[in-house]
Design a binder for these strands. Structure first.
Lengths: 211, 211
DNA sequence: ACGGCAATTGAACACACGTTTAAACTCCTG
DNA sequence: CAGGAGTTTAAACGTGTGTTCAATTGCCGT
């Protein structure tokens, strides 16, 4: 995110990602222009409108995250994707932007979460084959639940303990420190001592997964 | 939320809860005034400012939710509080408002979640005593994780499948249908087959709970 | 070197917002 | 019945917004 040798258009895009991520999508065009060291009119000249600028940011963020995933990141744990990204200083603004995107809803959030769920389902299936993960009655639903619960917990934690100076890495480490033990505890030992709740729900809704 | 025999001030407050819940806190004073059948100036006359109006809504929503909890609601499952509230037509706007409040962050969200976490810890402790819930190395952290994960999943689900015509009850039922099986599965059978992940994390951070 | 084209700017526009103000209305009290 | 306090409204104000426009700058090819 260095201001070096970038197209003006790219500098404006990066500034927009920065401000949207820090202030939400109500951030003004003028504040973005200031951050980019540019006049407000030029922002519109390059992107047409604020909405189009946001759409361009959405697309760019999604593309960079997709690329980064195939690169250096350790695979295997889908729910830590954002945590790993936040640790790389260059990617921190993308994490902040993605968080705002999920808080605001819209196509970006849908696309990101759908991909995350699909990835998680793959990781879980690999684990099942390797014998480290228990099989599920409905692997797709389990992957969806795990992603929604863990990403959702991240969103709430960010709202309860907002990053100072945009330091998402510290906030996410804080979340990990708070939730790793209870999460691992539940994942390895369970929460309930008997099967009555599960069994009674299964006879109530006995539908098998439909794919 | 009927428009009958209420103080004008109360009618404006209810209209504000309705519009804030439906459109977020960017909802305009004018739209609230229209919904209440009143002029914009009167809204400010009664509450002083838009921020003060929101503060009054925060306080009122929190108070009503606290009262309703001691009443007819089935105790025992803290994470279903919002689901049970959404099923009562009268309370649906409060649920929508609360969702927006958590998405926006702020004191309302902190107060609500803190209370929810405290309640969950109580329910879990009761379950542990009764032998239906497994004990935890850190009961407070477990309660916090469970609330953040389940409420967070609710927030994300609402953003992915927005309620039509404010029908939060249907959206939440949809979420339950999608996540009940995987959640119960994980809670009774666990997710991992061996203890290596948990044990290795415990030696890495062997701190016992500090209270 | 110069004409042309894209980049860029500063000023302005139209609009929506929260809020203010003065006047009208309502209703209870003396 | 008079009057005053509280309620309510319509209109206006000031500000910030996204966007437009004409003018200026800077660069590149011929």
């Amino acid at each position: 995110m260095a201001a070096a040798d970038l197209t003006t258009r790219a500098r404006i895009r990066d500034a927009a990602i920065h401000r949207f991520g820090a202030d939400g999508f109500a951030a003004s065009v003028r504040s973005i222009a200031t951050q980019a060291g540019v006049s407000p009119g030029l922002v519109i000249h390059h992107f047409g409108s604020k909405d189009a600028l946001r759409a361009a940011c959405d697309e760019y963020v999604l593309q960079v995250i997709r690329e980064s995933k195939s690169r250096a990141l350790t695979p295997g744990s889908a729910s830590d994707l954002l945590a790993q990204l936040a640790d790389v200083e260059e990617y921190t603004p993308l994490v902040a932007y993605m968080v705002q995107g999920m808080l605001a809803g819209g196509d970006l959030a849908v696309a990101f979460l759908d991909q995350m769920i699909a990835d998680a389902e793959g990781y879980l299936a690999t684990g099942v084959e390797a014998g480290t993960v228990r099989p599920s009655r409905d692997p797709a639903a389990r992957a969806r639940y795990l992603v929604l619960a863990n990403v959702g917990a991240l969103l709430l934690h960010v709202r309860l303990h907002p990053p100072v100076d945009g330091d998402y890495a510290a906030t996410i480490r804080e979340l990990t420190a708070l939730t790793a033990v209870p999460a691992l505890e539940i994942f390895t030992e369970g929460l309930l001592t008997d099967r009555t709740m599960l069994d009674s729900y299964l006879v109530y809704v006995p539908d098998p997964p439909r794919r």
